[in-house]
Every structure is written in C-alpha cells, then in structure tokens.
C-alpha cells in the first residue's frame, strides 16, 4: 500500500487550514502577531510563540527549548521579522519529524498483518475502516479481524466498515478471546490468499496491566502462526489528547512493540503537538493522520503540512 497519493496533499492542507481558520476565531490566546506573520521579532513575539507551542500540547519544557533556540538565532540577527521566525520554527519542527515520514508499505509475503492498538475512543475502528477502503482501492484484498470482543457492538461496527470497503471479516461472539479471533483471522487469510489482515483490538487504557498483557498475547499468537507477524503494530493516538499520549506511547511500545502510529482527529482544533514529545519517546514513524470519517480522510503523515498547521 502506498496510501493516498501525493496529489491529494493540497486538499489535505486546505482541510487543515479550514480547521485552523476556525481555531483562530475560537482561540483563547492572543497569538495574532504570529498568525499574521508581520512586524519585527521581539521578546513578546517569542513569548507568544512559546505559548502557541504549549497550546498545541507540545509541553512547556519543549516549548521553552524551541523558544530558547529561536531566541539565540534572533540575537544573531538572523530573524528580521515574524514571518522569518515562523518559517524557521516550521522548518525546525518539520526537520524533527521528517524522519518519521515513513508510509506503510504492504509487501508480500502475504498475508501482511496489521495489529491496531490504542486507548479507548482513540479511533481504532474508524482508522481500520478507512485503511480497508484505501487498501481495496489500491487493489489489495483485505480481511478484518474483530478482536475487540469487549465493547458492546464493536463487532457490528467493524462489520459495517467491512461491508463498505468490500473486505472480509472474521468474528467471534462478544466476550470471546481476542487472541483466538486474531489467530482465526490470520489462518483464514492464509487459506484464502488475502493480502492484508487488519486486526481491530479493544480500546484499553495503558495503565491496565492485565489488558496490556492480553494484547501482548495477541502479538505472540499472531507471530506464532506467521513468523514475522504482526508486520505492523499501529498505535492510534487521538490528537485531542494532551500530555498523556506520551505515557500511552511508552507503555504500548513496551507491551506490543509499536512500529507505526496514526494521529487521529486532526480535523478539529487540536494540533497534536504532543507528537513532538511522543517521537522523543518512541522511534516508530507516523504512518497516517486522520482528518475526517471518510476513507479519503486518512492521509499519509506529512511533516511540513503538520508543522505548518501547528502555527
């Protein structure tokens, strides 16, 4: 899967911009000087910028770090105006995240198994639905594993997405063992020659060790059936989450060995600045951003657009 193609980047950007225009109306803080990008740089502008970073959930420490670096550059006389300052900050952020711009590529041997994990309400099932849509459009056969056997009607929800995308689904009854569902799904995919298996797991708070053990078991069981699987452990992070995303990433990394991340709900006013901290915590790339509920609203992560949208 090469994911959504590059020409759609423009549309994605417009979408982010539209969200941001509304943000500005709503915004609590006065970051106008930065937003307008005019006038000379002074201490006030640097403070505003630090605030804007904090408001993006980048964290006070990291915001101060960025502000300090920019202050030094400014003192050297390299930042004539706010526009230059903003451009510099974007560049810094984009460069930091550039190494995390690695799209998910689906390659044989099939089945390629993707395990999707995250806390409750992060958007796992919706992300899977959108992924299934994309994969089908790019000619792959897809099987969804309804391994969220806990939440009421989670299986039905995934079933609707399977139907929409034209994907197969393997499901058990509510309350069944999620590893068993994943195992059956992988077996079925092997037998049918399906390209991709997307395993939907129940949302779980990373602090619940028994639930984390449960998902660890899913990883193990899938790996036993197909050496090297799951080929991707995709952690879904909600962009509206604040600093807690760091702990989520750390713990899911520890239990499941995260190999990629999806940042959802970026179509609101939350900026997802916490990924700047998350990427310091774990090495996995950011595969996707979610900017809506339609299949085309799952986009490959683009560091520059992301940095642009931050300020």
């Amino acid at each position: 899967m090469t994911g959504p193609n590059a020409t759609s980047r423009g549309a994605f950007f417009t979408r982010l911009k539209a969200g941001l225009a509304k943000t500005r109306e709503l915004l609590f803080m006065n970051v106008e000087a930065i937003a307008r990008g005019i006038g000379p740089v002074d201490e006030k502008v640097l403070t505003d910028l630090e605030e804007a970073l904090i408001l993006s959930d980048a964290g006070a420490e990291l915001a101060a770090e960025y502000a300090e670096t920019l202050r030094a550059v400014w003192r050297r006389g390299e930042l004539p105006d706010v526009d230059a300052l903003r451009a510099r900050l974007r560049k810094m952020v984009a460069e930091t995240l550039a190494t995390r711009m690695v799209p998910l590529v689906v390659v044989p041997p099939y089945p390629f198994v993707v395990l999707v994990v995250g806390v409750n309400g992060a958007g796992k099932t919706t992300t899977i639905g959108k992924m299934a849509g994309w994969l089908r459009l790019s000619g792959h056969t897809v099987l969804l594993a309804a391994a969220d056997t806990f939440r009421a009607a989670a299986i039905e929800q995934l079933g609707v997405w399977a139907e929409r995308a034209g994907a197969d689904i393997v499901k058990h009854k509510e309350g069944a063992d999620s590893s068993a569902v994943a195992f059956d799904a992988v077996r079925a995919a092997k037998a049918r020659g399906t390209h991709v298996v997307l395993v939907d797991t129940a949302g779980r708070l990373h602090t619940k060790s028994h639930l984390m053990e449960e998902v660890r078991k899913v990883v193990r069981v899938v790996g036993k059936e197909i050496p090297g699987a799951p080929h991707e452990v995709l952690l879904v992070l909600d962009a509206t989450n604040g600093r807690n995303a760091i702990a989520q990433a750390r713990t899911f990394q520890e239990f499941t060995g995260v190999t990629g991340m999806a940042l959802t709900k970026l179509d609101g006013t939350a900026k997802g600045g916490v990924v700047l901290s998350v990427t310091r915590e774990i090495g996995a790339p950011i595969r996707f951003v979610g900017v809506g509920e339609k299949p085309e609203d799952l986009r490959p992560f683009d560091a520059e657009s992301f940095a642009e949208a931050l300020f």
Binding site: L26, D57, T240, G242, A245, G268, A270, V274
Partner: peptide, 28 residues
C-alpha cells in the same frame, strides 16, 4: 475525555456557547 489536552477549552467553549452546558462528565 480526562486525557484531553489544551484543546479542551475550545471544545468546551464551542459546546457551551451553542447549547448552554449544565454539567460535565469526565471519562477515562
């Protein structure tokens, strides 16, 4: 969501202005 970050004010304000909230439930 108890995990909500800085954006909570924007969300709360928008819902409040449109509807006049009388209470909040903090989940997770």
């Amino acid at each position: 969501d108890a995990m909500t970050g800085q954006d909570a004010v924007n969300v709360a304000r928008a819902f409040h202005e449109k509807l006049g909230l009388t209470g909040v439930v903090l989940t997770k």
